[in-house]
Each structure stands twice: as structure tokens, then as C-alpha cells.
Amino acid sequence: MMRKIFFISCLLILKNMVTGQPGNTTAIIFNLKFNQSPFQLEKEFTTDAGESIQVYKMKFYISGLKGINTKGDTILLSKEHFLIDAADSGSQIIKIQAPSLQHFIFTVGVDSIRNTSGIQNGVLDPAKGMFWTWNSGYIMAKMEGISNQANTAGKRFTHDIGGFKYPFNSTRKVLLKVPQNKINNRSVYIEVNLAKWFTGKYSILLKEQPICHTPSILAMQLADNFVTSFATLEN
């Protein structure tokens, strides 16, 4: 009897190891763009307001990834945080196990509990440069580079969006429709149009606002802008 139970459990373990969890692997691919052009670090772009920018760092966190299935149920897809980095194409692909979905829901930024519970590991390691050491909390998204219009040393602009406490909570929720023309939505492309960083809701001019590095009204406006950058692509 014992022997039978033992072998059956071994077989079950083996089966899980081979097949993985139920559901299909879906790749969510973040496609960074600047209006119609593919986005590239260090390449010069012109904002809608006519300001020049060359971006050297562009990173943001994604968390609380959920889906809404065909029955309308909300399903938690991952408890992980993901750091999407323009300098690392691997970071722009998130692979998850998911059934057929109608919508994706995620948060741009880091869950508030992770901002208050000491040092985290992995992509949340403060060594990743996405953490404010003097005012504990994560930088939810950052864009840093050079603009001819920035009146700063070296024409540098630094837009670090952070803050997790009222009234400056900079995390934002995104809900996107999943295109239904793909079988089992094995790969879903999410376009991130970085031009909207400056125009999505508020017009932010680099000649006026080259620096953001506190939880502040400017950080809230940039967060409101950035969240409009996300859209699913029908391809």
C-alpha cells in the first residue's frame, strides 16, 4: 500500500515537472515607441512640443498583473514585479501562464507594501537604481537624458516618478483589451508610446520642468501622462 502511494505521488510530481501548470504560456511583449518610430536609447527624438530629447535611461516597474477571462472573472496572473528596461530587450518580454483573456490589468509601479517592508531582492533590489534612499520608496518609472531645451548643467533632464503615499501616490492602473484575432493569445504586444510621457494628459515642457526627483505634483502629472502610453497592438 505504502509503496503504491509513494510511486503514484512520484509520478504526479514528475508529470507536473514535465507539463508545468495548467494554462498556456503567453508572452507579453512591451514594444517601446516614440510616436510612429521604434524607441531607441541615445537616439534623438523630437517631442510633440518640438523639444529635442536623447534618452539614456528608461525603466519602469510593472506589478499586479491580472487578466479578465471570457466569463468576466478576474484572474491573478503573477505576483511578481517586473522591471522593464529600454536597455535590456529581455526585460521587455514577460512570460506567464494564462488562459484565453479579454483584458489585461496591471499596475505601473511597485506595490505599496514593498515600499515599506525593508530591502527587497531581485528586480526590487535597491541596487537596481530605482529606489530613493533618502526618502524610502521606489522610483516607479524613470526617463533620464539630454535635451537642448533643459536649462541645467549638461542639458540633462531627470524625470524620476515616485511616491506611494497619499497625496503623491504615483502608481497607476492600466486596463487593456486583448486583441481576439490571435489563437489563444500566445503573444500580446503592448505598445508603450513614450512621446506621451510629455503630453498624455498634461503638457510637460523640458525647458520648464527638467527635473523631477521627489513625490510631488510634477511626479503625479508625469505618472498621469505615462499611463496613457500603454496600448495593445492588433498584430
Binding site: N115, T116, G118, P126, F131, T133, W134, N135, S136, G137
Partner: peptide
């Protein structure tokens, strides 16, 4: 921690003087 209470966990405190 700190005079302004900016740091919310003892484990994080060392990062501020280290990186300043």
C-alpha cells in the same frame, strides 16, 4: 530614521549615507 523621518525601515538606512 533620519532627522526628517525619510527612511521607513532600519534595514534601508545604510543606503542613504552609503550612496550620498
Amino acid at each position: 530614521f533620519m532627522w526628517d523621518g525619510g527612511i521607513n525601515h532600519l534595514d534601508l538606512q545604510f543606503l542613504a549615507p552609503l550612496t550620498a
